[in-house]
Write a protein that binds this DNA or RNA. Structure first.
Length: 545
RNA sequence: GGCGGAGUAGCUCAGUGGUAGAGCAGGGGACUCAUAAGCCCUUGGUCACAGGUCCGAAUCCUGUCUCCGCUACCA
């Protein structure tokens, strides 16, 4: 993955305008799984997620509520943190674009672009809503009364032109094409890469990076004549305007790596190994962002993964449509482990997929309660019943052979960000283990052994030893997806679990995922206790739907 | 409009030249260690449509229809 043993992974930062739905945090859960996997492997891992807090929309919304922008975003950040805690998200830093070091980082990136001759003052023109600010062409309505702002339909829009700073994106076209060609894995999945490459080849235009009207943003550090916008008292000249959108939001990835203050940290963590983002912002992350970094003399990220949407009956889940799932509700029903598993198993990480309470509960019951949960339960029960709880050693049977195929498949899919397929590969092995129980019929072996039939006692030990080992391997392998279930699985099998709450601090996991490698002789299993109680569909459906 | 992708069992999808597959959902059965879970068997598809190439096409070619993604300044 990474040429060294460190792994720096980020999510996009969510917009702080509301409480989060599961469709928003889905990306964070996926990235969290990858971060935990790398931590457990022993990589020095840094996982960054956070919140985007600036913009005229935020300021406007706060004003409507009679509060300050800062107080408004503080409230939403608290809601995000509550939901992320419920989902067991384990960031090494939760970044906010109002953090002082981020403000310094964004300003420094602008200064570097200026020093490199990549930004210039130009004219930005477009529709301007007096109540809100400039509106993108895609964000205005054409009505019988003319062009209107969707948020303020009674206000007349004005066609305005203002002096703004622009980044010479056009100067980076050739370098971008070359970077895409030399790094075929830079943008994944492939069809997103092709779309972005097509966009680059179609010709790149410069884009504006400042706004003069907005006050809720990072002060632009440079005056039009190139002098510093910082005043003698340390404050910023409002005439310079603020940094606009991408030179604020995207910068969080370098801020989170230590830029510009902590050179040692930045040296260690940059470039990022993986940005996990949604498909709506692919262009900004794969085209604008590398150009911005190069302009500052920094490296482009190594890989960008573009995921799809969670849909409800074919429509994108969203707050405005009201067709979203509240993560706290889902966690209350499925548990944090169940919610993480089901979200990432039901939705392929590379494209959109329909989800619903019904599909989540069905998946939970099938995969967790019936298949894996029951496998663990029947295995532990049989060891208790037939072997007085004494944990038998694994043998070298067909389950070992199956595991030799399942583990590489799981790893390969996981490290390719194909999270649902990784789980599918692991659950093929769960199914194999369940079939093994019915094939070997340990209850028959136990009767034969009790009756003194030659070799049956030893064979029963092999069969149950293989099943215990299968459960240990599954429980350990799935730990990034199910961080609190994993130690409980291992505990039922009588094993220690050495990883901390965020996946750090344990022994490197890969050697422990070898068949029989983690077996400790002389152990005892605990009492069997259902890990994932089966849910009744109706009881599990919240009244709100 | 341009570029790209997809149309296969009720649902989600795999399957790129050789007698149509998986999971879930539905039906039946044998068992009993287990969370009435698990296991076995099974219903179900003129593989969008029409031509063509080939001994042979879901798979290659042409055309048609339908759907989806990208096609620049939302955080």
């Amino acid at each position: 993955m990474s040429p060294d043993d460190r792994y720096y992974i980020t999510t996009a930062i969510a917009y702080a305008n509301n409480r989060p739905g599961l469709h928003t945090l889905y990306e964070v859960v996926g990235a969290d799984v990858l971060a935990r996997w790398h931590r457990m492997k022993g990589d020095r891992t840094r996982f960054l997620t956070g919140i985007d807090e600036h913009s005229v929309n935020i300021a406007q919304r706060a004003a409507e509520l009679g509060t300050t922008p800062k107080a408004f975003v503080d409230e939403n950040v608290a809601l995000f943190k509550t939901a992320e805690d419920a989902l067991l998200i384990s960031p090494d830093r939760f970044i906010r674009t109002t953090d002082p070091d981020h403000i310094r980082a964004a300003q420094e990136m602008v200064r570097r672009a200026y020093a490199n001759g990549d930004i210039y003052v130009g004219d930005y023109e477009g529709w301007y809503c007096p109540a809100e600010g400039f509106k993108a062409p895609s964000d205005v309505l054409e009505t019988a009364q003319g062009t209107r702002c969707p948020n303020h339909p009674t206000v007349d829009l004005q066609w305005l032109s203002e002096h703004n700073w622009f980044l010479r994106l056009s100067a980076y076209q050739e370098r971008l094409e070359r970077y895409f060609e030399e790094h075929p894995d830079f943008v994944q999945p492939d069809y997103r890469r092709n779309e972005m490459l097509g966009f680059i080849r179609g010709g790149l235009e410069d884009f504006s990076i400042s706004r003069s009207g907005a006050s809720w943003g990072i002060p632009f550090p440079i005056m039009p004549d190139g002098s510093s916008a910082q005043l003698s008292d340390g404050s910023w000249n409002p005439e310079a305007g603020t940094i606009y959108v991408w030179y604020d939001a995207l910068i969080n990835y370098v801020t989170g790596a230590g830029f510009p203050d902590d050179k040692e940290a930045f040296e260690r963590w940059w470039p990022a190994d993986l940005h996990v983002i949604g498909k709506d912002i692919a262009r900004f992350h794969t085209i604008y962002w590398p150009a911005m970094l190069w302009s500052a003399g920094l490296e482009a990220p190594r890989r960008v993964w573009v995921h799809g949407w969670l849909l409800a009956q074919g429509e994108r889940m969203s707050k405005s449509l009201g067709n979203f799932l509240d993560p706290v509700d889902v966690v209350r029903t499925l548990g944090p482990d169940g919610t993480r598993y089901v979200s990432l198993r039901e939705v392929p990480f590379d494209r959109d997929a329909d989800v619903s309470w019904d599909s989540f509960v069905r998946r939970y019951n099938t995969d967790l309660a019936n298949n894996f949960g029951n496998l663990l339960n029947r295995t532990v029960s049989m060891v208790n019943r037939y072997l007085e709880g004494s944990r038998p050693a694994p043998s070298r049977g067909s389950l070992q052979v199956a595991w030799m195929h399942a583990l590489p498949a799981y790893r390969e899919k996981l490290e390719a960000c194909q999270l649902s397929e990784a789980l599918a590969a692991l659950w093929d092995f769960v199914d194999k283990a369940n079939r093994e129980v019915d094939l070997e019929q340990p209850w028959v072996l136990a009767k034969e052994a009790k009756a003194g039939v030659e070799g049956k006692s030893e064979y029963l030990g092999h069969v149950l030893g293989d099943l215990v080992e299968a459960c240990r391997l599954i429980g350990l392998a799935v730990a990034p997806f199910m961080p609190t279930a994993a130690p409980r699985i291992l505990a039922q099998l009588g094993y220690e679990y050495s990883y901390g709450a965020d996946g750090n601090g344990g022994a490197p996991v890969l050697p422990l995922l070898e068949w029989e490698a983690g077996f400790v002789p002389g152990g005892r299993v605990a009492a069997a206790e259902p890990l994932f109680p089966r849910l009744e569909t109706e009881a599990a459906t919240p009244a709100a739907g």
